[in-house]
Amino acid sequence: MYQGYGGVNCVEAGGPPAGAGCGGYVVGETVKLLKELNAFYEYDVILFDVLGDVVCGGFAAPLNYADYCIIITDNGFDALFAANRIVASVREKARTHPLRLVGLVGNRTSKRDLIDKYVEACPMPVLEILPLIEDIRISRVKGKTLFEMAEFEPALTYVCDFYLNIADQLLSQPEGVVAHELHDRELFSLLSDFYLNPEEKKQENHQDNLDFMIV
């Protein structure tokens, strides 16, 4: 365990060498170890940053101990397909303990049209849409949080506000939802039509513009 920026304690659940084992197994074992060490009861907030491949039981293991789940996705087909699987996993886990889905965060995207299309079909809150800002990627390379970088680059303060908004919503202990995922075929149809019928999309956007002008 290492202490990071702002006194936050951090644990990296590293996986085995590529092709030599199961990363999901490591995540599951790490969660068990943290429980044995009573780590779950020593902190006000514990965040698990886990891959979206919840078909693997190991990657879904933190949901067994969580109060909330936040889905991080971009505005693309593949990410939303994975997000839909997470919705299914939350619904399944919610059968046995009070796990709730807080909502969805759009990650580094200049558009949200597919996200909006998905949450219309599978209702859930959209907590925030993080803009397509290169500094978010740079912060990872530098090994620093955006808040740490903002101390020396005040221009980044506005980016931090997006994350503070998400934190405020989470700390308010929202009721959350247990959404019902879309069937795979239904999801494919919903999202693929968006790509396969661009003319219809243009007409819809044009109509939206007309409506806006009339108002």
Score class of each variant (00 low, 15 high):
1 M>N: 08
1 M>D: 07
2 Y>G: 10
8 V>E: 05
8 V>N: 08
9 N>Y: 13
9 N>H: 14
10 C>E: 12
11 V>G: 04
12 E>A: 14
14 G>A: 14
16 P>Q: 06
18 A>Y: 11
22 C>P: 06
23 G>M: 05
24 G>Q: 00
26 V>Q: 04
27 V>K: 00
28 G>E: 00
32 K>A: 14
32 K>L: 08
35 K>R: 12
38 N>V: 04
39 A>E: 14
39 A>V: 15
44 D>P: 01
45 V>C: 07
48 F>M: 04
49 D>Q: 09
50 V>P: 00
53 D>T: 07
54 V>C: 04
55 V>G: 11
56 C>K: 02
59 F>E: 00
59 F>V: 08
59 F>M: 03
61 A>S: 15
62 P>G: 09
62 P>K: 07
62 P>S: 07
63 L>V: 03
67 D>V: 02
68 Y>T: 05
70 I>D: 00
74 D>V: 01
74 D>R: 05
75 N>G: 03
76 G>A: 09
79 A>G: 15
79 A>M: 04
81 F>L: 11
81 F>Q: 09
83 A>N: 03
86 I>V: 15
87 V>F: 07
91 R>E: 15
91 R>I: 01
91 R>D: 05
92 E>I: 01
93 K>T: 12
98 P>E: 06
98 P>Y: 13
98 P>T: 01
99 L>P: 01
100 R>A: 06
100 R>T: 08
101 L>Y: 02
101 L>E: 00
102 V>F: 06
103 G>D: 03
106 G>C: 11
108 R>E: 11
109 T>H: 01
113 D>F: 12
115 I>A: 02
116 D>A: 12
117 K>C: 12
118 Y>P: 02
120 E>V: 06
121 A>Y: 06
121 A>Q: 09
123 P>M: 04
123 P>N: 09
125 P>E: 13
127 L>A: 03
127 L>N: 00
129 I>R: 04
131 P>G: 05
136 I>L: 10
138 I>E: 12
141 V>L: 13
143 G>N: 03
145 T>F: 02
145 T>Y: 00
147 F>Q: 09
149 M>R: 07
150 A>L: 05
151 E>S: 09
151 E>H: 10
152 F>K: 13
154 P>R: 04
154 P>D: 06
155 A>V: 08
159 V>R: 07
161 D>M: 11
164 L>V: 08
165 N>K: 15
166 I>C: 04
166 I>N: 01
168 D>N: 12
169 Q>C: 04
171 L>Y: 06
171 L>C: 06
172 S>N: 14
173 Q>N: 14
173 Q>A: 10
173 Q>S: 05
177 V>H: 07
181 E>Y: 12
182 L>F: 05
182 L>V: 08
183 H>C: 10
184 D>K: 13
186 E>I: 11
188 F>P: 01
188 F>I: 13
188 F>C: 13
190 L>C: 07
190 L>I: 11
191 L>A: 05
191 L>W: 00
193 D>S: 12
194 F>I: 02
197 N>A: 15
197 N>E: 14
197 N>W: 14
202 K>G: 01
203 Q>L: 15
204 E>H: 12
204 E>P: 02
206 H>N: 11
207 Q>N: 09
207 Q>S: 12
208 D>I: 10
209 N>P: 01
210 L>D: 10
213 M>E: 10
213 M>D: 12
214 I>T: 07
214 I>R: 11
215 V>P: 00
